[in-house]
Design a protein around this nucleic acid. Structure first.
Lengths: 174, 174
DNA sequence: CCCAAGTTTCAATATTTTTTGAACTCAAGC
DNA sequence: GCTTGAGTTCAAAAAATATTGAAACTTGGG
């Protein structure tokens, strides 16, 4: 908490209260929250994104926290997530060492980055497992039908791995 | 096809104990569980699917419950989910009124059905909201940049709705 | 150096989702 | 119309996830 040196005198330089969310902000947030849900992204992250999406200019940490009424921890983690997935950009205001945030220009490529980060690792990690399962099945004299299934699964996996980079080219920095 | 492979003839017709999962079954289950996780499908469902995927022939309720060691409730709900998403087929053994289950031939179309059922409703439901948010923004004199963002979002939404049925044709029964 | 604004960390807590199991339904055969 | 096997339902328990907030960390300026 704050040390007992709170200046009560006169007006404070930053208002303690923030404008509550407007109806259109709530509506867009709902949309992003639903979409995020499909990909397993937590609500708080989607809310932050929605807020930035409708903001005419970049917002800083405190504004986000205040307007969404969420904890510092959540804002910090939410921004980290969005940063890590290249969904937001920071703009440093010249005189201040604060960062302000805005959505990256392309939502499409943001989503791509997100999908990539979820699906690709899973596919990659699965490859050796799938191969093992197939070999195992072939040796232990399983039904041809099962072997066939597993072969298809393997083909699928490798095709997906090939195709992924073509469809969704990785960003420059990776 | 009765179970003549049970060499332990002359015993009780239903054993109280079931074979524990084999390593390859566990490995495949892990894979399906991970993939399912991305789409928010619960672990128990993925496990059931994996078991059926490796089974040389259709399995009935009790076998599934016994081998996976899960509750009746979970098996029932899991099978319901898989049925609803057209990921499994039932085969009624003649003579018995029990159903046995096997995976549908195409995992690909199973996944398609699943994706469809998750994403499409969200997109459809969102359309009017997105339109409202855009109009609101246009009227309330928001920055051109924000209006532009929202226009793009709307275009995106309608394109996705158009494209979806083309890429992923709905099954005959809907 | 030291301070303090700005942010991150993470253990504790709250919330949401999944699983369980006992009570119930539903047909089929008697 | 009763019994029984097969499965479903759903409230309550367990597990998994997300959020909170106070303490710790970082960094630029004095």
């Amino acid at each position: 908490m704050k040390p007992p040196s709170e200046k009560t005198a006169g007006r404070r330089k930053s208002r303690p209260s923030f404008e509550p969310l407007q109806p259109h902000e709530i509506e867009l947030a709902d949309f992003f929250v639903r979409m995020a849900g499909i990909l397993g992204v937590p609500r708080s992250v989607a809310e932050i994104y929605a807020l930035l999406y409708l903001a005419p200019r970049p917002l800083n940490f405190d504004l986000i926290q205040g307007r969404l009424g969420m904890s510092k921890g959540s804002v910090s983690q939410g921004l980290k997530f969005l940063r890590d997935h290249e969904m937001i950009l920071s703009v440093k205001a010249p005189g201040s060492r604060r960062e302000s945030w805005m959505p990256t220009p392309s939502l499409a490529s943001s989503l791509v980055a997100l999908l990539r980060s979820q699906v690709l690792p899973a596919l990659e990690q699965a490859t050796p497992s799938l191969k093992r399962v197939l070999q195992d099945a072939q040796q232990n004299g399983t039904t041809p039908a099962v072997v066939e299934r597993l072969e298809r699964l393997n083909r699928w996996n490798s095709r997906a791995l090939e195709l992924f980079p073509l469809l969704l080219p990785p960003p420059p920095g990776s």
